[in-house]
Every structure is written in C-alpha cells, then in structure tokens.
Design a protein around this nucleic acid. Structure first.
Length: 911
DNA sequence: GCAAGGTC
C-alpha cells in the first residue's frame, strides 16, 4: 500500500514542534526538520500510521490568523468616502504582506500532498484560522482531503487519540468569527473616522504636541473598558459623605484586650444610635452568649490562567498587564514556563504534576519546600482544585524548566518566574489551617462580637509569600460569663467613596463583561493609555483623562450606551447562536449592521452633544467648520452680554439659522431663529428702536408651507427684541428643524432634556438589549438596574429608598411623604409592622442633628468619660419626638413622650 | 490614520 502524503498545519510553531515530536516518537521513526519560506515556521517530516494507513507527515504552522479583513481599496483612505458608507462598503479578506512567506510555504507543500490536517487551537478563532489555511491550500491543490484534529492538551494520549479520530472542520464556528470581524471593522472604522474628523481639529487638545497625529479611536472593546474607568470616576465624584454612628466596646483582662464590634454594624440615624447607646449605658453589663471555636481553612489559589497572572503581577509587583504578557512571552519562548495565553485554570488528570515539582527541588529558596511537597511523610501534597475554566487548548500556566535565575533576566523576569513557580507549588499544597474563636456578648439586648485567630498550619502559605492570613489573639471567655466593659463608646464615621479602579479591578470588570480575550485584554488597556483616554498612577489606578471623560460624556448625553459592555455582550451571544447554527451568519450581520448604522446616523445628527462635552474640557481651536455657528458670519450688533465680541448671523449644518456671539465658548449668548426660514441676509438697515445700536436688520424669507398663511414669506426683521412677528414665528415654528415629526426641535445642550433624547433615539434605533423598537437601551425594561448613571446630576433620592431600623421594634422603616393638608410633602418614618406605632418626622431628626453632634462631641471630649467606662450621652437637651409626631423636650420616652421612663421600657411596647 | 483577534 502506497503512503499518503499529509500536510499538517498548527496555529503556532511551538505546537507544530510539540505535536510533530509526539507523533514521530509514537511512529517510532526519526524526525527531519527543514526550513520553510518563513524563518519562524519550520517544517517537520516523519512517518506515521493513521488508522492503518501509512502516512508521510509534513508538519508546519501559521502564526495566528493568516488573513486580515479590510475595506476594498476604494474605501481605505479616510476621506475616500462618507464614514456612513463603511456599513455597506465591500470588504476583502487577504493575506497581508508579512504573512506572504507562510502562504507560499503552504501552497508549495499543498501541491505535494493528498491530505490536509488542521491542528489549530480548538476554539472559534482556531476554527476560523483553519478555514483561512484551507482557502490557501485548496487554491494550490483542489484535490486535498481536508481533516481537522481536535485535541485538548499537548500530551501523548490526547494527540494520539485526536489523530485517530479526525473530523471535518466546523464551518459554523468559523462563521461566528467572520461575523465578529466584520462588525468590529465596520463599527470601529466608521466611528473612529467620524469622531476623529469631527473633533481633532476643532479643539486645542492640550495633551498632544501635534493634533495631526491624534486619532480618536472607537472600538467595541476599548470603549467599554474606558467606560468602566469613567463610571468609577463619576461614582467617586458624586459621592456625598454620610455620617454614621456605631457603638464600640472593649474589655481589658489579664490575658489581653478584646475589641467587640456592634453586630448592627453602623447606623445612619443618630437618634436611633443614641437611644440604643443609652440603653447600653444604663445597663453596662456584658453577658457572654456564645463562644464558638472553629477550624478554618484558607485554600491556595486555583492553577494560573492568563488573567490571574496579569492581576496578580499587577497586585504583587505593580507590573502592567502589557509588560506581564511581554515578559511571560519571553519566558515561554525560552522554555521556562508553559504557554502564557490560557483561560484554563485546572490541570488535566494526566498531567504529571510531581515531575514539575521535582524539577524545582534544587532551587536555593523554594527548593526545600518542593522537597517537603514530595515527601509523603510531610503530608503537604494536595491535588489542585480547578476553577472550572478550560479552553481545551492549553494547560494552566506552570513552570516547564528549572531556573535558579538567568543572568540576562530583568527584575520582572525574575519576579514573574518566581510567581509562576510559587503559584504552582501553592496549588498542589494543602490549605492553611487556623483556629478561629468568636465570642458574642449581650449588653442591654444589643449584640456585640469579637473574634481572634491563630494559624495552626501554614502549609501553602509557606511558599506563597504573596498572601498572608492575619491572626490576632483574644482572651478566653466562657458561656454565661459576665463582665463590665472597659470602654463603651458611641463613635461616628463617614462613608467614603470607592477607590479608583486598579489594573486588577479593570481586568476583572472586563473578564466579567466578556470584553476582550485573555490574549487581548492588556492590549485594550494599553490602547486607552496610548490614545490618551486614561492615565495610570503609581498605584496602578486608572483615571479618565479629559478627553476620555468628554467622549464618554458626549455619548452618554446622546442617551447611548456605546461606552457600556452591552453591545459586546449582544455580539457575543449572537456569535454563539451562529456557532450553534441557530442563526445564520448573513442574518446576524444584516440586523446588527443595520442597527449600528442607524445608531451611527443618530450619533452624527447629535454630534453637538460631543461638542458640548468637549467644550467642558477643551478650548475651541477655530480651525474646524464643523459647527459653523461659532465662527465667522455677518455682524448684527455688539454682544450685550460679554460686551466684547460681535453677534453674527450663521447658518448651522442642519440648515437652521441663529445669531451667536463670536466670543464663544467664553460667551454663550445666542438668539435662535425660527426653523421655517429658508433664507436670511444681514442688511445695512438698522433698527430705530433697539439699543444699544446699531442693530442691523435681517431680510428673512420663510418657507410658505412652514408658516401660517396670514404671515408674509418676506420679512425685514430685528433680533434686538422689538420684532413681534419674529417672536410669534419662533413661538409657532420653534427654533429647530422644519419638520418636528421626524427631527424634533432641539435647544442647545443644557436645556435639552435627556427624555427628549431618549425619545428621539427610540424612533430610529432598536434597543441593544432586547432588540425591540420603542425605547433606547438605557431605559430598557429588561435592564433597569443597568440604566442609571452614577453621575451626580442623575442621582435622585426617592421616597422609600433608604431605611432605618424602627427604634421601637427594629423592623426596617422606609421614609414616606405626607399628603395631608397641613403636612403635604413632609417626610416621615413610620413603622409598618403590626402593633408598632413608631412614627417620626424626618425634618425633626435632621434639624436637631447639629445640636446633637455638638452634644456628642462634648460627651466624648468633656470630663464625662472619654476613654473611660461609659461615654454617656447627655440627653437632657435632646429633642425627641413622640409617637404622635409632637416634639417633646428633655429626657423622655422616645415613643410616648413620658418623662418617667425611656423608650426601652415604654409600656406601649408591652414591657 | 480606523477594530479585534490570532501570534513572532
């Protein structure tokens, strides 16, 4: 039987070498290596038998995608077409210049072979690359019999099994990637060209030495990444510190000090806190109600995936994700660590983990730990637990070769290799063991708890020096034991805003939202820095730049969530449907691109929003004619607002006329003219009424059909305030577009309400969440929790949205608003639980807060026990409110107002 | 000059 010549192609040279090595060993024969056209992609030759068929194997590789997608030549230049055309412009898939040598190798080898076996990674991208290879190879030899090998790890058994069970490549998987590529290209290019050409020359971009090189890119991954940064930044900006109160208790004994925390945590209502504090102070005896001793385990981390490597390198060493991937690639190329781009965080059963540990035994620092791991007497070994992710292509990142440190390594190389090794050793180690003691005490019905921990066995913590497990001792307590607290204090604090996102936080956000892949996330982060959309401080925390914030603000003001991850999530779910065969590629492409095109058109018609947002941060340069109303024009009069510049007549891009101050943006004085004007020209006539003069009159020509029939189409008018006809026509026609049913009149920025934006958008674009028309995605009923912006202007405090525990029975009470004749609009808390009659006006609570704070300060710093046993509050001046809502003075019951007792023993509570 | 995805 004659031998079949088989061309095998892997996704990267390392896989070609590894698989060829495994198969040639199994085939029993030797392996020959020869050069291909590309110096990176060698060709391995050996004999092998597939299902009884003698084969002559030729094994080579590509380097990732062989082809690129781009627009047809006619559309590649930025000014070659309207960016809107990019939604339909023809696209071509081609082999770029730097891949031509690989293409030639494939063509030459194909001609010699009968079979083609594709060894691309077993994911959607791999399947797509497979079809690129098929296209090149079958063009050279159309008789090729095409096969796909599916393997999950580069180990003997997997490879042998996959070659015995060859299948056909999966067109649906490849289709899904085609969809993604085309959508990314069209959206990215259209929005990038649009916003760059619109804004770059219109503003003094202070961060750029030369505006000509500035690209304001938009991408479905980079923008949501920027969105995470901006959103957190806005959250911090809009944070309003809120004061809260908590009760703390300490107890000194011969064995040491125990700190007991209030189990309610903290309270935002001072009155509530002080009442409870009073109760504790009245009966300052602590009774131990619970002593719990537990063994606690702290588990080692899961095996290392790319994202975890990036996050941990950032957290432990402050190395950027981009640098981490660079160094990891270096270490991988030199054979010290396994493939660094992997989602997998569990080891295959077949991996020889002990062999990997064995290699590390000689290391001067962690070698002795590796020895302990392998010693059964130590009992330190534990099979690693997986995190449940498996990309079926690569194992978790682990050391593949011992090194005591190479002389050419940088500090980052040393650190990353150490992290990979220590992480691996930790994974196969037992968890740390601790003994935790929790003590709960009761003071006047309030619960407090204290806990302490001692570490019994460090185990993996011995080698994983990056993690610690704080321990603290507490004295011994027994159930029922009573003691007098050493201190019992009512303390205040204020809520703090969240911190800026760290690189590890950002990677987590992206991972959770499915933005980017393990191999590209660091690229998206770097792109934000390169584009000057964000900056990173020395603590690896990200802030948006003015430019980044302005762009997000502009789209947010339009009512669009182009900066949120939902668009990507929708594309991802569509891709999945395509790969499963539930939706056709053409159908998904058509609907998605139609929607994005409508969105693009709408964004373009709302470009004033982007301008307004940019104007918040940047000076206008005056170089752009994009919004003509701000520059040039015939003079009407001197501006009465700034008294420095002239007011000029301008026609806006939408065809409408206005009179604006040349001092814009410093002076925003403007007169908006009726939308029914067809022509307007400044005359030499001056108004005899309006002052200060001269005010030049304008000859208007109105469109007949756009004004009532009793008005003349020709009108010599004045914008100085005297012209009643002009005023009436503004009233009748509005100052916006001619046809309000399709493009409603729109005032400038701040006066435009967000609801009018939403209405406008909803007419043209389907919601990106539910694909329904009639609303935009930021008000989608299916996504309400996503829809509110964190920006302060959008934050509204509504009735019933915050609660305080009822001071009588503890049930959460929500604020409500009175609707009675005397108290309409006044807020109150009223307990809704059955039989409880607690009631208080909110303004009574807040009005008396100032005095109470002073009083509290006095109680804590005055001679009344600061640091002593009882920081008792002087309630003599406190204004309490009775259940009827009437204020009562003095030390009286909070519930019924009776001065003979406090609320904690009020008869109305059945005590 | 534009995207994101492979990889060197």
């Amino acid at each position: 039987m004659s031998s079949i010549r088989v061309l095998n192609v892997a996704e990267k040279p390392s896989v070609a070498k590894a698989v060829a090595g495994i198969l040639s060993r199994q085939g029993g024969g030797g392996m020959r290596v020869r050069e291909g056209r590309s110096r990176f992609n060698k060709i391995f030759e050996f004999s092998y038998t597939i299902r009884g068929q003698q084969c002559q194997m030729f094994f080579t590789s590509v380097t990732g995608h062989l082809m690129e997608l781009d627009f047809d030549d006619r559309y590649r230049k930025w000014h070659s077409c309207d960016p809107l055309q990019l939604y339909h412009a023809p696209v071509v898939k081609y082999v770029p210049e730097d891949k031509l040598d690989i293409k030639r190798t494939l063509e030459e080898e194909s001609r010699k072979c009968q079979w083609l076996v594709l060894w691309l990674d077993c994911d959607r991208e791999g399947e797509n690359i497979a079809f690129e290879v098929v296209e090149v190879c079958t063009q050279a030899n159309r008789h090729l019999n095409v096969w796909r090998a599916r393997f999950s790890a580069l180990i003997d058994r997997d490879i042998r099994e996959s070659v015995e069970a060859l299948i056909r490549p999966n067109q649906l998987f490849a289709d899904a990637v085609d969809v993604r590529q085309e959508i990314d290209l069209r959206i990215g290019a259209s929005f990038t060209r649009f916003q760059t050409m619109l804004l770059k020359d219109a503003f003094h971009l202070d961060f750029a030495a030369d505006n000509r090189n500035v690209v304001l890119s938009y991408g479905p991954c980079q923008f949501p990444t920027l969105g995470f940064i901006v959103e957190r930044y806005w959250e911090i900006q809009s944070h309003e510190p809120e004061e809260f109160w908590t009760i703390n208790c300490t107890h000194n004994s011969d064995e040491g000090i125990a700190t007991f925390n209030w189990m309610r945590g903290h309270m935002f209502d001072y009155t509530c806190a002080v009442i409870i504090y009073e109760m504790c102070v009245q009966e300052p005896v602590a009774t131990v109600t619970k002593v719990r001793q537990q063994e606690k385990l702290k588990y080692p981390p899961h095996p290392l995936s790319t994202i975890e490597l990036e996050k941990r390198a950032s957290r432990y060493f402050r190395i950027s994700s981009e640098q981490t991937m660079k160094v990891a690639e270096d270490l991988y190329q030199a054979g010290f660590i396994s493939y660094p781009r992997t989602e997998t965080d569990c080891f295959s059963q077949r991996t020889d983990l002990r062999a990997i540990v064995q290699e590390q035994q000689g290391h001067p620092v962690w070698g002795s730990y590796a020895q302990r791991l392998l010693d059964p007497g130590e009992g330190l070994w534990r099979n690693p637990s997986g995190g449940g992710h498996d990309d079926k292509a690569h194992p978790p990142i682990h050391p593949t070769k011992f090194s005591g440190g190479e002389s050419r390594w940088s500090q980052d190389h040393h650190r990353l290799y150490e992290l990979v090794v220590r992480h691996f050793l930790a994974c196969v180690s037992k968890p740390a063991v601790g003994a935790e003691t929790t003590v709960e005490v009761d003071i006047a019905g309030e619960s407090f708890s204290a806990s302490g921990r001692v570490i019994l066995e460090k185990n993996y913590l011995d080698v994983y020096r990056f993690e610690s497990w704080g321990g603290s001792m507490i004295p011994t307590y027994t159930f029922g034991q009573q003691f007098a607290p050493t201190t019992l204090t009512l303390d205040s604090g204020v809520t703090r805003p969240p911190t800026l996102l760290s690189e590890a936080d950002l990677l987590s956000c992206m991972d959770k939202a499915g933005i980017g892949t393990d191999a590209t996330m660091h690229d998206h982060i770097k792109k934000l820095l390169d584009r000057c959309y964000a900056t990173k401080d020395s603590n690896t925390r990200f802030s948006p730049t003015n430019l980044g914030e302005a762009l997000v603000m502009g789209y947010d003001d339009m009512g669009y969530e182009l900066w949120k991850p939902y668009l990507r999530a929708m594309m991802e779910s569509d891709m999945k449907l395509v790969s499963m065969g539930a939706k056709r590629k053409a159908e998904v492409l058509e609907t998605c691109l139609e929607q994005m095109k409508a969105c693009f058109q709408d964004a373009r018609s709302n470009k004033a929003k982007l301008f307004e947002a940019m104007e918040v941060f940047f000076e206008r340069s005056g170089r752009s004619g994009a919004l003509e109303q701000h520059t040039g024009g015939d003079i009407i009069r001197r501006c009465g607002v700034c008294q420095e510049s002239d007011m000029v007549l301008r026609q806006k891009p939408d065809g409408n006329f206005m009179v604006g101050c040349l001092g814009f943006p410093q002076c925003r004085n403007a007169v908006w003219l009726p939308g029914s004007i067809a022509e307007a020209a400044v005359t030499t006539n001056t108004c005899s009424i309006c002052t200060p003069g001269p005010v030049f009159m304008i000859q208007f020509k109105f469109r007949r059909l756009d004004i009532p029939h009793n008005y003349n189409v020709n009108h010599l008018g004045c914008i100085g305030g005297c012209d009643e006809i002009l005023k009436q026509l503004v009233e009748i026609c509005g100052t916006g577009s001619r046809n309000t049913s399709t493009t409603p009149a729109r005032a400038r920025g701040p006066t435009t309400t967000s609801s009018s934006n939403q209405q406008r958008n909803s007419r043209q674009v389907a919601c990106t969440h539910c694909m329904q028309y009639g609303h935009s995605s930021n008000v989608c009923p299916s996504q309400i929790s996503h829809s509110s912006s964190a920006r302060s202007r959008d934050v509204s405090q509504q009735n019933g949205d915050s609660s305080v525990p009822c001071e009588t029975c503890g049930t959460p009470c929500f604020s409500r608003t009175a609707n009675t004749a005397n108290n309409r609009g006044r807020k109150f808390y009223s307990c809704q639980s059955q039989g409880c009659n607690f009631f208080v006006w909110v303004d009574n609570l807040s009005n008396s807060n100032g005095g109470r704070r002073a009083e509290r300060a006095n109680a804590r710093t005055g001679g009344r026990g600061r640091g002593g046993r009882s920081g008792r509050v002087n309630a003599a001046d406190t204004t309490f409110v009775s259940a009827t809502g009437d204020p009562v003075s003095g030390r009286r019951c909070f519930v019924c107002g009776d001065p003979s007792h406090f609320a904690n023993v009020c008869p109305s509570r059945g005590i």
